[in-house]
């Protein structure tokens, strides 16, 4: 295989997705941006919201897998070699991370600012003394 450069990857992704590449990049930017925004705004991760986001992420992982099987006219019965299992895990993890980050970020943007205790918080002075 000859060298791969980012330009080639981008050119192929453009051919693969066309308009959807830009939409995909916009959604990814929205997810990451809103996730970072929520982190900064809340000065940490809100545990309750994060649990919900991870539930969405789990569904996202399975959705990514089923989507791939759908667009490639294949199914779980076609997963054979070790590299196939790695690919399945990679797709699931990709879907999980994408779903978690995007849903957490969107909840941060649109959610009613529930006053819940962040995971990372300041320890009150009186308990310190105890």
């Amino acid at each position: 295989m000859q060298e791969l450069d980012p330009f080639v990857f981008f050119a192929v992704f453009q051919e693969m997705l066309g308009f959807w590449l830009w939409l995909l990049l916009a959604v990814a930017a929205l997810g990451i941006g809103s996730f970072v925004y929520a982190l900064v705004k809340d000065r940490g991760i809100r545990a309750g919201r994060f649990v919900y986001a991870q539930i969405v992420g789990i569904a996202g992982g399975f959705a990514a897998l089923f989507f791939m099987w759908w667009i490639t006219s294949s199914s779980i019965r076609d997963v054979g070699g070790a590299i196939d299992v790695v690919l399945v895990l990679a797709i699931w993890v990709g879907g999980f991370l994408g779903g978690t980050i995007l849903s957490y970020g969107l909840m941060g943007l649109t959610g009613r600012s529930r006053r819940e205790t962040p995971v990372v918080t300041r320890i009150p002075a009186d308990t310190k003394a105890a």
Partner: peptide, 14 residues
Amino acid sequence: IHSDHPMPSRRAFL
């Protein structure tokens, strides 16, 4: 596949 609706989670896999 050009006309399929990609999901954000698909990117890593692609």
